[in-house]
Amino acid sequence: MTDIDFSPLLLSLKVAAISTVVVFITGVFFARLFARKHFFGKTVIESAFMLPLVLPPTVVGFALLILFGKHGWIGKWLLEWFDVQIVFTWIGAVIASIVVSFPLMYQSAAAAFDSLDNRLENAARTLGASEWRVFWTVAFPLAWPGLLAGLVLSFARGLGEFGATLMLAGYIPGKTDTIPMAIYFAVEAGQMEKATLWVVVIVALGFSTITWLNWWSRRNMRRFTDQNRNR
């Protein structure tokens, strides 16, 4: 096990981190936009957001190929205008991660914003705060535990993404070999030691993130409630 190449770990972290940032911003944006609003088509849009959660990863990968492939709608345009190719690059892995983890972020953020006490935001408005200020000083900080949960879940989901990534980014050692890819192709090649190492790494990563999140949210739940302070 001396000649282990650690690039899959770094690549996985890079892909998951970038995708988490994108998903966090867009997820929070849409969740806030739709919170407590009832409009025609909301259910349809939300169902579309949730779709990657229930579809087989191969279907998501297929759809992404159609969109981002050399002849795809977006892929063609990116190639012509920016000379950028998505398929078989690590950016493809990022896009696959974004699509599969967005539903988790959106759902957590929507639940967090919906459960806010509406009167607190109204109080801020009567005190003269603009919608922008209401968001940053009241809604965001109070929704933060839920938003953080979404963020961590998205990151963990991004780390573990395999199916759609395989279809869009393929397996190119040193370029698109994230940990899940490395495990699959190590087993294929009969390199059980290498596969075991990566399995241990990803289990440790996943377990510690979730444990940390659970610990953190339990501690935070208590922050603004009476019962625990007086105890």
């Binding site: 006490d117 607190l120 801020a124």
Partner: peptide
């Protein structure tokens, strides 16, 4: 709302 300059004391106070 922001331009009305109305003070409101909410039921249960709605302190942040």
């Amino acid at each position: 709302v922001q331009a009305r300059n109305v003070g409101v004391l909410f039921q249960d106070y709605a302190l942040f």
